[in-house]
Measured scan of single mutants.
Amino acid sequence: MISLIAALAVDRVIGMENAMPWNLPADLAWFKRNTLNKPVIMGRHTWESIGRPLPGRKNIILSSQPGTDDRVTWVKSVDEAIAACGDVPEIMVIGGGRVYEQFLPKAQKLYLTHIDAEVEGDTHFPDYEPDDWESVFSEFHDADAQNSHSYCFEILERR
């Protein structure tokens, strides 16, 4: 099963200049909980913004210009990325925008964090048809001392 995991502000903004323009430790914990011990696929820009392999996960970098870091697996196509994951129950696609666009048609599940923030962004989550998805989990949280904005975790499964 292919799943996408993303944090989205208003207007589906997911990033600005290779960074997330908010401070939500709870979302980072949600991300870790849902990706640990699963292969993660990301684009080169996302890889560069993280700066290191995510521990406890097979890191697969999709790029037309593969790098030389041998701590991760470099691939040039969506099919190659899927094959590099091996026989696993769930593959997690973690961004960025172009990689989400490439995998959305193949995805069966979306793990979304909806952030109540209007922020400037240069990267967006692809538009998706809500009628194609069923919400199977939703959990709202107010902003607090650690988390700069209110947010809602949601899991959607393709109908």
Rank of each mutant, 00 (worst) to 15 (best):
L4H: 13
L4R: 01
A9Y: 02
V10S: 05
D11N: 03
R12D: 10
V13H: 01
I14L: 15
M16Y: 00
E17C: 02
P25M: 09
P25Y: 11
A26G: 02
W30K: 15
W30R: 10
R33F: 11
N34G: 12
T35G: 03
L36P: 00
N37Y: 12
P39W: 10
I41T: 11
H45S: 15
G51I: 13
G51Q: 09
P55G: 09
P55R: 06
N59I: 14
S64G: 13
G67R: 03
T68H: 13
D70T: 10
R71M: 06
T73P: 11
T73G: 08
W74S: 09
V75F: 07
V75M: 09
K76D: 11
V78K: 11
D79V: 05
A81I: 12
A81W: 03
A83G: 07
A83L: 09
A84Q: 05
C85F: 15
C85W: 13
G86R: 12
D87Y: 07
P89G: 09
P89K: 07
P89H: 08
I91D: 00
M92Y: 15
V93N: 01
I94P: 01
G97N: 04
G97K: 02
Y100Q: 01
E101G: 12
E101A: 07
Q102T: 14
Q102G: 10
P105Q: 09
Q108Y: 07
Q108V: 06
K109N: 12
K109D: 01
L110C: 04
Y111V: 12
L112A: 04
H114L: 15
D116M: 15
A117S: 07
E120M: 13
G121Q: 00
H124A: 13
F125M: 14
P126M: 14
D127G: 13
Y128R: 11
E129W: 13
D132N: 12
W133Y: 12
F137C: 15
F137K: 10
E139P: 04
E139C: 05
H141C: 05
D142V: 12
A143V: 07
A143K: 09
A145C: 08
Q146S: 08
H149N: 04
S150K: 08
Y151T: 13
Y151C: 14
E154Y: 15
E154G: 14
L156V: 03
L156P: 01
E157P: 02
R158N: 10
